Amino acid sequence: MHTIQITSDDVSEQSLSLYNMNLKLTLRYNSILRGYQFDLFDIDKNKFITKNRGLSVGAPSLIECNLPFVLILVDKSGRGVNAKSKEDFNSRMQIVIMEKGEWRASLKRKE
C-alpha cells in the first residue's frame, strides 16, 4: 500500500514508480464538485490510462481497469465523508494506492 498526501493546490503532479510501472498522477481541484479529478499517465507506454476521473471517499477508482491496483480517497479524520472545502484536502484527505487483492481483503475484514 502506498499513501499520497493531497495538498490544497489547484493542480498537482507526482511521478510514481509502482507495480513495475512508471506513472504520472495529475490531480485537479474541481471547485463546483468540491473534489479532485485525476489523470493517470503511463510514462513507459507514453499514453494515458485515464483522464478526468473523479475521486470519492471510500470508492475504489480504476477497479474496472486492467491494472494491478486501485486508488482510494481516504478521510483521515475517520468520519468517512467527502470534502466540504478545498482546505479539507490539505488537512484530512489522502490517496491510498493498493493492490486489488489487498483492497478486497480489506473489505472482508470490515464485515
Rank of each mutant, 00 (worst) to 15 (best):
E64C: 07
Y36L: 06
L73V: 00
S106I: 06
L67M: 04
R92W: 05
M1S: 13
K76P: 03
S15R: 15
L40A: 04
F48D: 03
V81M: 13
C65T: 14
G101W: 14
Q14Y: 08
L40T: 01
N90F: 02
C65P: 13
D44K: 12
S56R: 13
E111F: 13
R109C: 04
I32T: 14
A83Q: 08
F38S: 09
L16P: 01
I4E: 01
K84N: 09
K24Y: 11
K86C: 04
K45D: 09
I43T: 14
G58I: 02
K51A: 14
R34I: 12
K76C: 07
F69I: 02
E102M: 08
L18N: 04
F38H: 10
S106H: 05
L73W: 00
P68N: 01
K110D: 11
Y29N: 02
K47E: 12
V81W: 12
F38N: 08
P60F: 03
V57L: 08
G54T: 10
L23K: 05
L33T: 10
K110Y: 11
K24N: 12
W103N: 03
T26L: 04
E87G: 09
R92Y: 04
A105C: 06
A83M: 08
E64N: 10
R109H: 06
L18E: 04
D44Q: 11
S31K: 15
H2A: 13
S91P: 06
L73T: 00
F41E: 05
E102H: 11
N22H: 13
S17D: 15
S12Q: 08
N66A: 08
G78T: 03
K86A: 03
K100W: 07
G80T: 02
F48Q: 07
K108T: 13
Y19H: 12
L33A: 15
K24Q: 15
V70D: 00
R53Q: 14
L71K: 00
F38W: 08
I72G: 01
R79V: 03
I32N: 14
T7D: 02
R34L: 14
T3Q: 15
A59N: 08
L25E: 04
I43W: 07
N90T: 06
Y19D: 10
Q94A: 11
K86M: 04
